[in-house]
Design a protein around this nucleic acid. Sequence first.
DNA 1: CTATTGACGACAT
DNA 2: CATGTCGCCAATA
Length: 108
Amino acid sequence: MSKQISEMTDFEKLVLEYTKKIPKGKITTYQFLAKAIKRPKSVRAVGNALNKNPMMIKIPCHRVIRSDGFLGGFGKGPAMKREILKKEGILFDANNKIIDLKKFIYKF
DNA sequence: CTATTGACGACAT
DNA sequence: CATGTCGCCAATA
């Protein structure tokens, strides 16, 4: 199960904090997120932090994809992530590659 | 303390 | 375009 906020590290909280800022209908990448928290090289660590998402409802971690345009992972499975994004108007092709990255990308 | 892991990314082949 | 390799970083065992 996911961790409770109180049990999380400062780094993880920071990641989630920024993730919450991503507006509906938009997406960002693990890389932009890492840069936003002033840790441009902690890209992988950012992904790990999102995987421990304590509140799926309040934290739109599904809006974070890979910088090469691919879907990336998701706790509940990539298929789920893909469906949610579809509802927000963001589509992917048969290879889980986003259709129009530039159009939906959100940089902090 | 060291080793391993992983929702990543840049580059080489 | 499809793999493979390597570097990075924070958390965990």
